[in-house]
Computed example of a mutant assay.
Amino acid sequence: MTSPRQLTPNTEASLLAAEFFRRSAGKWRSERRYYTLPDGETKEMVSMITICFLAPGCPELEQLAQLHQLDDAAILTCGAEVSWESTNSVSGKKESKGATLFGVGGTTLYRDRGFATTKPVTAEYYFSNPQTMCLRTKYKGSVFEEELKLIGNNYRTRQTIISRAGEQQMIGQYLEKRQ
């Protein structure tokens, strides 16, 4: 008789991340609102986002492993490529366009760039439940705490809190609808 497979916290986190990225794959319309603290100034954006699941050993994950100077690209068990085009909801002005890579290695999420930098960054992540991924990223003196939640098959919510020197600087709230 064989015993049930034992999952380590890293293995379980990687499996949850793979399922989360698979379920997130597709095209999304993201309606965002950023609140600058403490004055409360708001900025509203709409972004069209495309998410592609990345399987182990794919060229994008190998590239990401090289950026992070990982000895073995197989550390990255899955990932996602996210591209976006953002427009200011009020003015209609194009705000940004780009793409980023994510790779999962244990409980670390490797990225080719951060929210406020073009340099490679890492985030620690965990799942509060199988539908909710929580991230904590630190660089350039700032801390980015994010929660991404899948709601059924057609909706996601996100919230980001950006802090510097222990003071909250900005809150971003997002409602994303599958297209």
Rank of each mutant, 00 (worst) to 15 (best):
Q63N: 15
R111P: 04
T108I: 14
L15C: 08
L109T: 03
M45V: 14
T132E: 13
V90H: 11
L76C: 05
T157C: 10
R33M: 14
R29S: 13
T11E: 15
G105M: 03
A25Q: 06
G152T: 08
S163N: 09
P130L: 09
K138Y: 09
F144N: 00
F20D: 00
G106L: 08
I161P: 02
P38G: 08
V82T: 07
K93W: 07
Q168H: 13
K138I: 09
Q63L: 14
L101K: 00
L150K: 08
R33F: 06
R156V: 06
P38I: 10
S91D: 10
A80I: 08
G79T: 03
A123M: 10
A73Q: 05
T77C: 11
C58D: 02
R32F: 07
G103K: 00
Y126K: 11
C58Y: 00
T77G: 05
D39F: 13
S96W: 06
N10L: 10
S91M: 05
A73F: 07
E19C: 01
L101W: 03
E12S: 12
C134S: 13
Q6F: 11
T11K: 11
R178P: 01
N10V: 06
T157D: 06
L67R: 04
M133Q: 04
T11Q: 15
Q69F: 12
Q173I: 11
Q168K: 15
A18H: 02
